[in-house]
Amino acid sequence: MSRPRHDRTPASATGRFVALYVVLLVLLAANMAGTLLSLGPWAIPARLAVAAGMVAVIATTFMRLRQGTVLVRLVAVMSLLWILFLFVLTFADFLTR
C-alpha cells in the first residue's frame, strides 16, 4: 500500500501554513488600508492585484498546488485561461462600442 508522494505533507508544513496565513492577513489589512489612500486610477488595479496575491497564496499553499502534479497545475492554469477568454472577448465588445 504505497502512499502517493504528494499526499504526504511534512510535519514542518504547520509552520509554513501559519506563516502564510499571517501573510494573508497582512495582505487583507493592506488592501483595506489602501482604501484610505487616494490612488486615483491605480486604486482598482492595486486592489485587484492584492486580492490576486491572496488567491495565489491560498491556491498554492492551502490547496497544495505547489506540491500538486503537473496535471493538476495544468488544470488550474486552464481555468484561469478560460476565464481570461471570457473576460477579454466580452470586453472587446464593451470597450469598442
Binding site: W82, F85, L89, A92, D93, F94, L95, T96, R97
Partner: peptide, 17 residues
C-alpha cells in the same frame, strides 16, 4: 470557445468585436 460573438453580428455588439 473564441468565436461565440458570431451569433451577435447584428445584435448591437461593437462592430469591431
Amino acid at each position: 470557445f473564441l468565436v461565440w460573438g458570431h451569433h451577435m453580428f447584428v445584435s448591437g455588439q461593437s462592430i469591431y468585436a
